[in-house]
Each structure stands twice: as structure tokens, then as C-alpha cells.
Design a protein around this nucleic acid. Structure first.
Lengths: 166, 166, 166, 166
DNA sequence: TATGAATGAGTATTCATTCAT
DNA sequence: TATGAATGAATACTCATTCAT
């Protein structure tokens, strides 16, 4: 991992206690940023559809601009150390709760139909992550370029939320 | 990996050239099975909604019953060798095409609104994979158990397909 | 450590779970041997003095003939992993108890004066180990060659046991 | 090691050329102190037994009060750099010679029986070091606390010196 | 055909040492 | 003189792969 950062081994361990500590930090910062983003979004009072689209766009921006980071996080997410797993869970739940708030707003004004905002939030996050995973893994020959994927997914998510099937 | 399959190391290398070859085989078989499943589904002429739900259910059955395999594949999916990457891409495209056929059927009868069935198919597969990833990674403390995730995702996918945003 | 044994890294880990496991094994075998030696000695009924001398001689034989092993054990003894520490303690206590039995025999026939055989046994073992440490560390230019050290220490130990100071 | 001394790394290397130099200095000072202690002891003309007991007590005081230092020195003693080994040897020989002088005094007045005072001195030092090693390594669950070890060893050493085996 | 002992490149981590400020 | 960020050799351990039986 030191090589990946173009830093000498010792330098890494001068700043971090362990690999786990590094990941915790990176992860913590990204998730704090994302949380702030979600809270701002809600506060600014854009239309619900715009909010949903912004969230998807933000998610894909991470992949577009910081591919290595995204890859790293996904890999650790699959095989976390025990300490890290707890952290990941907690962070994810916080993000989901922020998204759930937005969904509750939508329910309150009758735009969204759902009985379980938290679960729907998790499903949406999951869907975004999944599509990201696809895009990350696809490499050069990807069917859908990142931007198109974001656009398509936004529509998909928004529609899924708005109108319950009969 | 040999231990996981309860076979001796030597035996594995007697039948397979390398780890990559093993993954290729496993993956190929699973994807062939899934493709068959999708084609059967379409041929049997169930309602579109039932088809979508069956697809999601089938996806989650894989996770529920062969968790180790699913984890392994996901990990390799993140960091494939060049040869494997091409294969994964090809397989995925085939599956997506099958799903796209079902979506086209829906468009033909006016139940589904979409301009790009292939892209939507990829988004759906991506969403399913992402949610699976969530469930796989979550371990014990998972918010949504596998079954609930499948049910929720089905509804979500179906709704997303059916009703165009205003 | 693999290099020290002239074996490839992988081979070592094929046979042992960890460094700790290796040390546990080596240590266990040596201590079992020593324990057997002490029990045989007592059973054979040689004079007490002969027994004490034999013990010292046996101790130095280890150093003379298996210097690397002795060094390794001493190093780990100074900085054991938690699991190993417990083991070392237990093994040492067993050896000390065997020696204490011999000392109790001496007390019974009036040849040895002591109120606390176990503590004396530990002191004797400690003295032997300490002198070994000296010899091990001394390298080439050692003042006392191994054999002379053994002889001198035997006399010292035996005298120390026999006659209480006024 | 710098952390242990509550000094900055740079400062340490400002005053010392290397780790070896630090150890040489610490060791040199401790040994000079001990040598002074032994010479004083002899000059003060206490009884021989009192001298022996004082030596053992002094040795254990080092361990009791500067455990970290003692541990460090022992570790280096097992694996010294070539330069350090020579130094250690020299220092030890000097200390042993001081102790040998005391033993010679005892021989002169008929209280001690020995043909080789230098070798006996080395054996005594060795025994003290060995028992220290025990105490250092034992950690919490030690059989003999430091004070008891010192007392017991004193008696042992003194008796060993005084009375020749039959 | 089947086995598992042997291998060594790769990874996380420690620690003595250097050097620009 | 004093600092601590940067370095890299060394160590414990993992894992895909080879090969003699």
C-alpha cells in the first residue's frame, strides 16, 4: 500500500498506526463529507427529484474522480478487519439515516410512497454502490460510461421511489 | 481455495491450469445457468412483474445458499486478471441481453417505459449485485436479512421500470 | 527464522501455524526430555551429589551441543508472546518440581538443609541458566570453557545445598 | 528507544553515534558504579558474609528499580554487535576481578575454600544474572518476588563459598 | 490420476538511522 | 543545538503454484 501512495514504507507508519488506521481515516473523511453533503442538500430545499439526482451524481463523481480510492474502499468493505467492520457499519447507517430523512420529507408531502424509509434508503445506497462496482470493475471497455450510468440510475431511483406499483 | 472445496491441492491443479481457470469455469457455469433461467422465464410467459420478482429472487438465492462462492466471485470481480476481466465482461453482457429482451417485451406491451433496454438491464443487474454486496458484507448485524432485501429490491426494480417520472 | 533452519519460508509454515507454534514445539520437546532425565535420575538412586552434578552436566550439554537452540530459547524467554509466556512458566514449574523432589529426598536423609525446596530448585535452575547465558554470550573469548563451567557450577551448587551457614 | 528516554530522536543522535554507542555508555556507567561499589565494600571491611549479601542485594536493586534498563541490557547481551561484545567482556572481567579480590580475602582468612577465585567470581556473577533473568522474565506470576529472590540467593551464594563439599 | 510437501514472491509491520530545518 | 519527518532493511506471515511420489 505504501507503493500505491508513492511514499516510503516508514513514512506511512510514521503517520498511521496500521493499515486499519489508514482506512479508518480515509473512510471517515469521505463519509463525513458525504454526510455533510446530504444534510446541506436537504437544508437547501431543492425539489425532491433534484435531491435524488444530486445524490446519485455525487456518488458517481467519487468513482469518476477518485477511482483508486473507490476501489480500495470496496475491497476492504468485502473483507474488513473486525474493528473496521464495526466502523463501516456505523458510518453506513449514518449515511442511510440522512437519506432516510430526505425520503421522509417526500412521504410527508405525498411525493413518495414507502412504509420503511430506512430500508429504502439502504436499498438506494446499495443500488448506487452496486452500479459503481460495475463501473469500477468494467475498466476501459465499459458498456455505460460513468456519466450515462449516473443519469440512468437517477431516473431509475427517482421513479422507483415516486410511484408505487398497483 | 482447495481447502474450501474439500479437495487436495494437487487434484485441483490436475484439473485446472490455474486459479484463473477455476474462476472462469465456476463463473461460466453459474452464468450459463442464469442465462438458461432467464430464457426459460421469458418463454414461460408469466406476467412481467412476476418475471422481475423471480429474477431478483434467483439472484438472492445464490447469495443465501452459496455465500462463500458469491464472496469469492465479488472479490475477484474487483481485481481480475486481464484474461478474467474480458470473460466477466462477456458473460455479463450476455446476461444483460437476456434481461433486455424481457424489458423489450414490457416496452412492446406498454408496461415499461424506457428508451435503452440494455442500459436499464445493466442498471438492474448492477442494483441487484450492489444490494447483494451489502448483504454479503454486512455479516451478522445486517439491517435487512436476505429475504427482506430480495422482496424490497423486487418492488423497487419493478416500480422503477413501470412508471416514468412525470 | 526460516533462513536459520536452511528451509524455505513456505515449508516452515506448512508444518507450523506460527513462530509461536514452532517455539512451543521445540521448547516442549526439550523440556519433556529434561523432565524425563530428572525423573530417571531420581529413580536410579545415585548419590545426591552425583544427581546434582549430573543435572548441571546435562544443562551444559545443551549449550555445548545445541548452542543455537539455547540462544533462541533464551531470547524468547526474555520477550515471549502472551501465549508462550504461560507455557514457559508451566514447563519451568514442572522442571522445578522434579528438582524439588530430589532436594526433598536430600532433606529426608539429612544431607540437605532447606525449608523451601521449590524455591531452592528455582534458584538452582536460575543459576544454571544464568551461567549458561554467560557462556552463550561470551562467544570465542570466553574465560571459562563450557566444561570447566559445568564442573565449577556443580561443586558450587552442591556445596550451597549441603551445609547451612552458621 | 528515544521514546523510552522521553527525548526526541534527533537529540539522541546528536549526542550518540548509534544505538551501540548508547548501550556502551549506559553499560559503562553502570559497570563503573558497580565497580566502585565493590571496591568501597572491600575497603570498608565488613564481614565477608555481609559483603556477599550486599553484592546480591545491589544486583537485585538494579532489577527492582530499573527493570526496563535491565531487560534492554540482557537482550543486547544475547546478540551483541562485535564491538559491543568486546566491551561487555571487558567490563564483566573487571567486575569479576573486583569480586575475586573479595574472595581472595576470604581465602586468606580461611573462611572461603576455593582454588580459582576468578572462576568462582564469574560463577557467582553468572548465578546472580541468571536469577535476575528469571525474575525479569517471570512477569506478574513470578514464584519468588524480587526481595525473596535476593535473600535466598545471598544465602545460597554464601553457603556455596564457605563450606567445601565433604 | 491423486497427493501434499516444498517453494518464493508479495504484504503488513518494526526499528535503527539520516537529514533538512 | 534540537527536532521529527522520511527512509529502507529486516521479520512474520499468506497464498498461488510446482513437482516428486
Amino acid at each position: 500500500m505504501a507503493r500505491a501512495a508513492r511514499v516510503s514504507i516508514g513514512t506511512v507508519y510514521h503517520y498511521f498506526r496500521s493499515k486499519e488506521a489508514i482506512l479508518e481515516r480515509i473512510l471517515g473523511e469521505e463519509m463525513a463529507r458525504r454526510r455533510g453533503f446530504l444534510e446541506d442538500l436537504r437544508r437547501h430545499g431543492a425539489s425532491l427529484e433534484a435531491q435524488i439526482r444530486a445524490i446519485a451524481e455525487d456518488h458517481f463523481a467519487l468513482i469518476r474522480e477518485r477511482k483508486h480510492l473507490a476501489r480500495l474502499l470496496l475491497r476492504e468493505w468485502l473483507d474488513p478487519t473486525p474493528g473496521l467492520r464495526v466502523n463501516l457499519q456505523k458510518i453506513h447507517d449514518e449515511i442511510a439515516e440522512c437519506l432516510a430523512q430526505i425520503i421522509r420529507d417526500g412521504i410527508a408531502v405525498g411525493q413518495i410512497q414507502s412504509r420503511d424509509p430506512v430500508l429504502v434508503a439502504h436499498a438506494m445506497l446499495g443500488a448506487m454502490e452496486a452500479v459503481s462496482l460495475r463501473v469500477l470493475a468494467a475498466g476501459k471497455g465499459a458498456l455505460c460510461p460513468v456519466d450515462k450510468a449516473a443519469e440512468e440510475l437517477s431516473t431509475f431511483l427517482w421513479t422507483g421511489l415516486c410511484q408505487p406499483s398497483s
